[in-house]
Computed example of a mutant assay.
Amino acid sequence: MDIPEDLLGAMPRDERFTVALQSAPEVTATGTVREVAPFADASTRTRRIRMTLQDPPAAFRLGATITVDLTRKVAPHVVLPETAILSAEGRDAVWIVDAAGTRVARRPVEVAGRRHGFAALTAGVEPGERVVVAGTHSLGEGQTVRLADEAL
Rank of each mutant, 00 (worst) to 15 (best):
E15W: 03
E26D: 07
A59T: 01
V133S: 15
G140L: 12
T65M: 14
A112C: 06
H77T: 12
L21K: 02
V145W: 14
L70N: 11
P108W: 05
A10V: 15
R130W: 15
Q143R: 15
M51P: 00
V27I: 04
V131W: 05
A37Q: 02
E129A: 03
T46F: 02
T32S: 01
R16G: 00
P12T: 05
P108L: 07
T52I: 03
E15N: 04
A84H: 07
V125L: 08
V109A: 10
R115N: 08
I85H: 04
G101F: 08
V33P: 04
V68C: 02
V125Y: 06
T28K: 03
E126L: 00
G63T: 05
T18N: 07
E5S: 10
E141Y: 11
E5N: 11
L147N: 11
E110H: 15
L7N: 13
D2R: 14
V125D: 11
T136D: 12
Q54Y: 02
L62D: 12
L8I: 11
P57I: 02
T52P: 00
V19M: 00
P57W: 05
G124H: 04
P4C: 09
H116S: 09
S87R: 14
G90R: 03
T122P: 14
D2V: 13
V79S: 15
F118K: 07
V145Q: 12
I3N: 08
D55F: 00
S23F: 10
V97S: 06
A40Y: 03
